[in-house]
Design a protein around this nucleic acid. Structure first.
Lengths: 160, 160
DNA sequence: ACTTTGCACCGTATAAAATTCTGTAAATGC
DNA sequence: GCATTTACAGAATTTTATACGGTGCAAAGT
């Protein structure tokens, strides 16, 4: 059974999605020009894409450096047990740490991969020691510090 | 020398940034209410944050499943050489692959970590075989398939 | 201590944008 | 072929963003 309801969208919708991923602040008038429709049906399509959940939300992207966030990392985490209870407990703890931006359950080496952002190495260290490694379900961790980011695209390629 | 020009912003600006990260589509009127100012200076602050580069851009977040993107992965990549020429060549190749959403240079096990998104396992496989592993600077790769995503916050914590 | 300057704010007016409404044409189903 | 539905355009309306003018406060200088 397929829970993720397949909503259909055509070539025009795809173009709308591409444009809004790259630039959410475009006016409806400009968007309508770009896709070759009048404003009314353009807006109608956007609303439909929002209501159907294809467009989930809109976000401002900030410059981490300029807001004083100098350290970003990926952390591979192994749990002591792999049962659902442990995973749920871990998730709950992770969710209340704002510095943990992402948390994915993965195959391979570890069990989870986290993306963490902090002010500097010092605050990163205390975050890890006092918060993350204090979670009792956590067995081992391996940090990968981001030296530089070459690509950080907010535009997903939409299959035909 | 500090290239990342430290722009100063106060408590109100911080609140604006938090709100716009979580919801970029908020109206200026509502935003002004939330922060306790009138619309005019609120807009002024937002514009300043945009011009200073603290706010880089605005993006629509889509539901990957609903646009037919069922497979997301992190890939650790080691290069054959670690000199600048090799890294630049690798970056150029990576940049033209739309399925590679992110590319970070990291410390630790590998040299790079990529985030890749694809339609299904089949298309992921052919992407990896025909595009990524064809890049001649690539030595080894290790894929971690995302089974599920528990947290994907677009809100960074802003240090005081 | 007083003045001056500059900045951040507010209320209002204007311009632009989003949204709604109405009618029309094309596509779909019977 | 006719009825029904869907998607569209153009115009009217409402909402929102933006620009302007004036006010108070705080910091800097005298």
């Amino acid at each position: 059974m397929d829970h993720s309801l397949r909503i259909k969208f055509d070539k025009i919708d795809r173009k709308i999605l591409e444009i809004l991923q790259a630039n959410a602040k475009i006016t409806n008038a400009q968007l309508s020009k770009d896709i070759g429709l009048s404003p009314a049906p353009t807006l109608e399509r956007v609303k439909k894409l929002e209501q159907s959940g294809i467009i989930k939300s809109y976000h401002a992207k900030l410059d981490p450096e300029k807001i004083g966030l100098g350290v970003s990392t990926f952390v591979l985490v192994s749990l002591i047990g792999h049962n659902k209870g442990n995973i749920d407990a871990f998730m709950r703890e992770i969710n209340i740490i704002p510095e943990v931006i992402e948390c994915h359950h993965i195959t391979g080496t570890g069990d989870f991969i986290l993306k963490i952002i902090a002010k500097d190495i010092t605050s990163y260290q205390s975050l890890m020691l006092e918060k993350v490694s204090e979670i009792k379900e956590v067995d081992s961790m391996q940090s990968m510090v981001i030296l530089s980011t070459f690509k950080d695209s907010k535009v997903m390629p939409i299959p035909a």
